[in-house]
Design a protein around this nucleic acid. Sequence first.
DNA 1: CAAACATTCACACATGTGTGCTAAGGTTGC
DNA 2: GCAACCTTAGCACACATGTGTGAATGTTTG
Lengths: 109, 109
Amino acid sequence: MNGLTVTQAAARSGWSARMLRYLDEHGLVVPARSGGGYRLYGLAELNRLAGLRDLRTRFGVDPAHLVFARRLRREPELRAAVDGWLAAAEDSGSWIEWEQRKHERLLAA
Amino acid sequence: MNGLTVTQAAARSGWSARMLRYLDEHGLVVPARSGGGYRLYGLAELNRLAGLRDLRTRFGVDPAHLVFARRLRREPELRAAVDGWLAAAEDSGSWIEWEQRKHERLLAA
DNA sequence: CAAACATTCACACATGTGTGCTAAGGTTGC
DNA sequence: GCAACCTTAGCACACATGTGTGAATGTTTG
């Protein structure tokens, strides 16, 4: 049985064991399994857990965001549709003005 | 006062007036305003509302997803970090197996 | 000016997501 | 074989998102 168990991986990664199971369930960090069904975390998994932590602290990216970003990578039609919509929105310029008003709101608060 | 008011635009777009205000608030479809503060929807806005509807029905894309996709476009560091993380995840292969197990689960249900 | 409509604000509720905890049962390693 | 750990399933809760509805107030237009 080679690799860390879920609580060992939790200790080394800073996530809770519960969260590791959650990430497994959602396909974001999927460890190997022992014959008896124990999760076995190796170096690759620990690195991905560290990367996740980085994404969260630096950018506020949650698991749900990554699930959607993964769809964008893997579904070209979806990517094209979303990109097209956003591009049109930028052309019209309304986004820029909205962004400015958002900053005004923040200053006023 | 040129353009449709919020309930007129709602009728023509199929969204509720409430939702149009929500989309405005989140910067996704931002109409012009009359001197007195009324929202004024023009052709560009109606088109974007139709596009939104299409994104939702074809792909299940919610407003929150678009807000994140917009961040991906506008924050190169974020895009690089997310893309790198997902690429590493794909290389390790675990995603593929997870996807297979997901299909098995669906078949079993 | 008055009727018809808009505005913002707020309460309310359903659903989804992230997280902790417990229960009942299986695995591992000494 | 036993202690220590794991598994899944479930309840519970807080927070965010999407949506309806109502109140108090302001705008438009005939």
